[in-house]
Amino acid sequence: MSRYRFIAAECGHYPVRRLCQVLGVPASGFYAWQADQQRAVGRPKTPAWETALVKVFGVHKRRHGTRRLRVALWEKGHRVGRQRLRTAMRRRGLHAL
């Protein structure tokens, strides 16, 4: 068990600053870890339109750019703009021929 997890488990019984002092970790480090844990829980998975993007891109044999991909995704019910498509394609390394 990490120090920060121990502090999170015991913070109901003892003050956080005291626990951090005893364990030799900065309180700001604990609060940063706690915020990161909350962000990780609330972080969404890959959106459905991105998985549909990869499928449509593969079906059309890498011949469609953002304009045609946007139309194909709109026909499938995914409302997404060209710039967002462009960003997702760059992130995934997809390039039209």
Rank of each mutant, 00 (worst) to 15 (best):
M1I: 06
M1T: 07
S2A: 12
R3F: 07
R3L: 07
R5V: 07
R5T: 09
F6E: 15
F6C: 13
F6K: 15
A8C: 01
A9D: 09
E10P: 07
C11H: 12
G12Q: 08
G12V: 02
H13Y: 11
H13Q: 15
Y14E: 11
Y14M: 12
V16T: 13
R18T: 03
L19R: 12
L19N: 11
C20Y: 00
Q21S: 10
Q21R: 15
Q21H: 11
V22G: 10
V22S: 09
V22K: 12
V22F: 11
L23E: 05
L23N: 08
G24S: 03
G24P: 06
V25T: 08
P26N: 11
A27F: 03
G29A: 12
F30R: 06
F30I: 06
W33Y: 14
W33R: 00
Q34H: 12
A35R: 12
D36A: 13
D36P: 05
Q37A: 07
Q37M: 09
Q37W: 05
Q37C: 05
Q38D: 13
Q38A: 14
A40I: 02
V41S: 10
V41T: 10
V41F: 11
G42L: 14
G42P: 09
P44T: 12
P44E: 11
K45G: 13
K45A: 10
T46K: 14
T46M: 12
P47R: 03
A48W: 01
A48R: 10
A48D: 14
W49Q: 06
W49R: 07
E50Q: 15
E50F: 02
E50L: 06
T51D: 11
T51C: 05
A52W: 02
A52K: 04
L53Q: 03
L53T: 06
V54D: 15
K55N: 13
K55H: 14
K55Q: 15
V56L: 08
V56A: 12
V56Q: 08
V59I: 06
H60N: 05
H60I: 03
H60G: 01
H60V: 01
K61Y: 02
K61W: 04
R62E: 09
R63Y: 01
H64N: 02
G65T: 00
G65E: 01
T66V: 10
T66G: 01
R67T: 04
R67A: 01
R67Q: 04
R68M: 11
R68W: 05
L69P: 07
L69T: 02
R70E: 08
V71I: 14
A72H: 02
A72E: 04
A72L: 04
L73M: 04
L73I: 08
L73W: 08
L73N: 08
W74H: 15
W74C: 10
E75G: 06
E75H: 09
K76A: 14
K76V: 06
H78F: 13
R79C: 13
R79A: 15
V80D: 05
V80A: 05
Q83T: 15
Q83R: 15
L85K: 01
L85R: 00
R86H: 13
A88F: 02
A88D: 09
A88K: 03
A88H: 00
M89P: 02
M89R: 00
M89Y: 04
M89L: 01
R90I: 05
R91N: 13
R92P: 10
H95N: 11
A96I: 04
L97H: 08
